[in-house]
Every structure is written in C-alpha cells, then in structure tokens.
Computed example of a mutant assay.
Amino acid sequence: MKEEPLVFEARRWASSFLSEHGREETAADWLLEHHLQLSRPQLLAAARERVEPQTWKHFEQNVRNHAAGTPVQHLTGSSFFYDREFSVNPDVLIPRMETEELVWHVIDWVQKNKELKSPRIVDVGTGSGIIAVTLALELSTARVQAVDIDSWALEVAKRNAERLRAPVVFHQESFLEGIASRKDQVDVIVSNPPYIPKEEWEQLDPLVRDKEPAIALIGKGEEGIHSYEEIIKHAAEVLAPGGLLAFEIGWQQGKAVKKAAEKAFPGKRIQVIKDLNGNDRIVTVVNK
C-alpha cells in the first residue's frame, strides 16, 4: 500500500494475505489488536481510523512473518488461557483448549471435595506455568508447587506467576523425583507431559513441529507414554489417600496410560475422560 491504511483496510489486506498463504484469517485480528492495543469491540469501532506509520510497518511485517511460519503467539509474546493472558515464547508450549479442560476437571474435583481446606497441588512439567498459576488463582486456599526440568521454561513460568500474583513454588527437577525425595505428600498431581510419539510428531503442522519445543512435545517410547510411567512411578509414594492424579493424554493413549496407572494403583478408581471433540484426553486416578 502506498500510504498507511485505515483499520478496516489493514484487516482486509491481512486476512486476504494470510488466507492466500494457508493461514487462519482470524490471526489478522489478533495481530492488529496487539499492535493497536485495542480489544475486539474497540478494533471494530476504530474501523475508519488510520493506522500510524510505525504501527503499520510492524503489523505488516508480523503478518508476513506469520504467513512464513511463525506462530502468532510468538509474535505477540502472549496467549490466553482460562481468560488470563500469559507470556509465551519458543521455550514453552502455546496453551491449548484441551489443557483448559484438564484444569477444569481438577478445579471441579477439588471444589467437590470440601474436606480439602488447603489442597496441596503439584504441577509436573509446568512449562509456561499455565496450569499451576491458574490453579493457584482459581483455588485461593491451595498450596501449589510446579516442577520442570527446563530452566528456560521455568523462567517463563516464574514471570507469569509474578505478573499474575499467583503464589506458586517452583522447582527445577525431573518429574516427581524431588517431591518424593523430600517425602512431600500432595492431594493433587496434575500434568500435561510430553506425549506425542516421534512418528506422529514428524507429521505435525510445521507451526507446531518447527516452532514449539520438542522436549515438551515428544514422548519417549513407541507409544509416547514414558513420561506418564515416570510420574506414576513416584505418584503412589507422594499422593495422599483420597488424592487425585490427573493427566492430559494423546487421543490414542487412553488404554495404555490407564494400564500403567492400574499397576501402581491397583483397585483404585481410574477413568479415561473424553474431550469436547469426543477424543480420549484425560486420565484420572482417585487414590481411594
């Protein structure tokens, strides 16, 4: 364009450009809202206002970057989860709706178990901290710990907790090994660990495969369930009687993860829960 466009012209150009490059048109609005610092209603109301030259320059470049393969969330530096804005970067996974379902199940379970006045919760493989921070804020009396082996991911998680004022204690540790060595007991273990088998990972959308951390995506072993087995190995030691273990899983892993849980928790109540799309997505163990 020869001159900076009006807001509605910028939206129209970006939507068309992204569509031509096989990207979601809605990303145009996300980027424009970010660069103009406007909400969706404000963006619509500003349709006839002109975009400032510097803003247009950065917006146009980011639209082209997204078309070339950079996730929108890495361009804006943030993503929403449970109606809160979290910082994200290439060191952590971009939050997904399926994980919101996992968090909802944990919150619902804790709220129904009214005897848990101050539930002790540990989030294993916290990444950006979305699970731990959300649980700490939604369950105001909870005592939340978060564990990750990756120091870069933990830095992102700590920044999110600090900015959102969530009282979370962070540990750089592998799975539940540190919790077990300290002989801590917890009421809830929750985890969205790496679970995508290597073969499936290679077939992922390049926006995910090439731009998000493989360490947080690829599950070891033929079925990708190594992380679950490592967590379950110590879960029986640290999970309090009556406590909850809750995993997010891949859509083909329900039977395998349930079988692994049954070995460590024989006779306990174990469920495979489907997500909103009807796929196996969550495995829960109630330790009673």
Rank of each mutant, 00 (worst) to 15 (best):
A68N: 11
V156S: 07
G242E: 01
V190Q: 09
K57M: 08
W251S: 15
H234E: 11
P95F: 00
N277C: 14
N65E: 15
E24R: 15
I282G: 06
A214C: 12
R281V: 09
I273W: 09
D108G: 01
G224P: 04
A261C: 09
P53K: 09
V51P: 11
F17Y: 15
E262T: 01
H226N: 04
P241A: 03
L44R: 07
W109K: 10
H74D: 12
H234Q: 13
L239D: 13
R159D: 14
T284E: 05
N192R: 15
R209M: 13
A27C: 12
I231K: 04
P197C: 10
P193Q: 12
P206M: 14
L31E: 15
I179K: 00
S79M: 00
F81Q: 02
I131K: 09
A28G: 12
I121W: 01
G278I: 13
E237W: 05
D29W: 14
V190L: 11
V144E: 01
S15Y: 07
L176M: 06
W13Q: 13
A180G: 08
E248Y: 03
D210T: 11
S87I: 10
I107Y: 03
A67F: 09
P5S: 07
E98Q: 03
A261E: 03
F170M: 13
L139W: 06
N62S: 12
D205P: 09
A46I: 14
R281K: 08
S87N: 04
I94D: 00
Q73N: 07
W56T: 08
D148R: 03
K259A: 06
L154V: 12
A146R: 01
H234C: 07
W201I: 01
G267D: 09
W56V: 05
F265T: 03
L6I: 09
R182P: 07
